[in-house]
Each structure stands twice: as C-alpha cells, then as structure tokens.
C-alpha cells in the first residue's frame, strides 16, 4: 500500500477539471432543460386551466341560452295551444250555429211540406167527403145536396137567437152569402125571402160563389157567420189531423232536444 503523491496531486487536479467539465456539459444543460420543460408544462397547465375556465364559461352561456330557448318554446307552445283552443271553440260554435240553422231550415221545410201535405189532404178529403156525402145524401133522399144545404141555412136563420138576430138587424153592412155552388134563381129567391122575412126587409144581400167553402153555404155579417159547410167539418178534421201530427211530432222533437242537450254537455266537458 503506497501513495504516489504526484499522482494524488494530479488526481486532485483531474477531479476538479472533471467537476468543471461535468458542470459545463452535464449538470447545467440537463438542469436547464428540465427547468424549461417544467416551465412549459406549467405554462401548458395554466393554459389548459384557462381553456377549461373558458369552456366552463361557454358551457354556462350555452346552458343559459338553451334554458331561455326552452322557456320561449314553452311560451310559444302555450300560445299556440291557446290559439288552437280558441279556434276550436270558434269552429265548434260555427258548426253548432250551422247545425242549428240547418235544423231550423229543415224544420221549416218540414213544416212547409206538412202544410202543403195537409192542404192537399184537406182538399182531397173534402172532395172525397163531398163526393161521398153527395152520394150518400143522393142515396138517402131524392133531393140535391145544395137544396139540403140551403134548407139547413134557412133553418138556421129561423132558429137564430135574439142577440144574433139583433146584431144582424142593426148592421149597415150588406149581408154576404157565400156558396160553394152556383145558386139558381129559385133558390136565390128562397134565400132572399127568408132573409128579408127573418132579418130585415131592406136588407142588402150579396150573393157570391166561393169555391173555398168546398161544399157549403154561409152568411157573414156584423162579425157573425151562419151556415153550414163541409169546410167546417174539414177544418175540424184538419185540426184533428194537425193535432195528431203535432202529437206524433212532439215525441221525436223531445228526443232530439234531449240529444242536443247531451251533445252540448259533451262539448262542455271536451272544452
């Protein structure tokens, strides 16, 4: 074991040189590089934090915008719903009015047709009735139907009560005698005589033939009417038919009105 002091001195110098060289070529560059890398990493981290913050702000902004859009959309939808409801009600009302109008029109047409039908029925019945009565009377007696009607009027004139008779005698109006058939001269004379005798001698008599009586004879004056006419019977007959028709019509109408009420109730529930 020996120490060469020259070598020791040389090694000390060598070591110090090596310290310098390594410091120059190893420690300083590597340390600097690591420091720069750390700095860059720190910068990047900072940058990424800033980006994250910016992204967060952007996200919040978009979130708020989306919420506003949703609120607006809800408002628009609500408004559209209200408008649709309003429109629906208007359409329902219009349809109901139209249906009511159609029903009224229909009812009017029905009424009209029924009136026409009743008129025709009345005429037809009167004709048939007249015809049958004529034939019946002809079969029963050998006198004409007109003669019987005239006799009936004459009989009524004779049986007049005092009140009616007084009214007829006091009136200034001409006494209108209407017949459904033309009177021959003999019958006219008979009628005039009867009236003059029974009511007043100077009574003014107007004779007229009125087909609307169908089959009959009547005397009209001072707001009173005397006579006999198949029209009276037929009027009663017609009113009876009306009554029957009305009673027959009331039942479906009641049913229809009940249905209508129920329909309104459904609408109200739907609304």
């Amino acid at each position: 074991m020996q120490i060469d002091w020259l070598t020791v001195a040389a090694q000390i110098v060598n070591f110090l040189i090596l310290v310098y060289l390594l410091k120059r070529f190893l420690y300083k560059p590597v340390t600097n590089a690591m420091a720069r890398r750390e700095e860059r990493i720190a910068d990047r981290l900072e940058e990424s934090r800033e980006r994250e913050a910016a992204a967060e702000r952007e996200r919040e902004r978009l979130h708020e915008r989306m919420e506003r859009l949703e609120e607006r959309r809800d408002a628009i939808l609500e408004q559209a719903r209200e408008e649709a409801e309003k429109e629906r009600r208007q359409l329902m009302d219009a349809a109901r009015d139209e249906a009511d109008a159609a029903r009224a029109r229909w009812r009017e047409e029905i009424e009209h047709e029924r009136g026409g039908f009743l008129e025709a029925l009345k005429r037809r019945s009167a004709e048939e009735f007249e015809h049958m009565a004529r034939r019946a009377l002809a079969d029963l007696a050998d006198v004409e139907l007109e003669e019987h009607m005239l006799q009936a009027l004459v009989a009524r004139l004779k049986d007049l009560d005092d009140e009616t008779l007084g009214d007829l005698r006091q009136t200034e109006e001409p006494l209108a005698v209407a017949t459904s058939f033309p009177l021959d001269e003999r019958r006219r004379e008979t009628l005039r005589d009867t009236i003059h005798r029974r009511i007043r001698d100077d009574a003014d008599i107007e004779l007229a033939s009125t087909p609307s009586l169908l089959c009959g004879i009547e005397l009209t004056a001072a707001g009173r009417r005397l006579g006999w006419s198949l029209a009276d019977y037929l009027d009663r007959f017609a009113s009876e038919v009306d009554k029957r028709l009305d009673s027959g019509r009331e039942a479906p109408e009641r049913e229809a009105s009940q249905q209508e009420t129920r329909g309104h109730g459904d609408d109200a529930q739907a609304g």
Binding site: N14, L21, L22, F25, A33, R40
Partner: peptide, 26 residues
C-alpha cells in the same frame, strides 16, 4: 491510474457533450 482517469474523464465529457448538445424541452 492517470491514463485511465483521463480516459474516464474523456468518456464522460464527450458523452455528456454529445447528448446535451441536442437537448429537447418538449
């Protein structure tokens, strides 16, 4: 001793220089 010491010094210095002349910070 000195010769091998210089060899080691040269090895370390040249090696360090070769590597650290192209350092990257990425």
């Amino acid at each position: 001793t000195l010769a091998f010491t210089w060899l080691i010094m040269a090895l370390l210095t040249v090696g360090s220089w070769l590597i650290t002349r192209r350092l990257t910070t990425g």
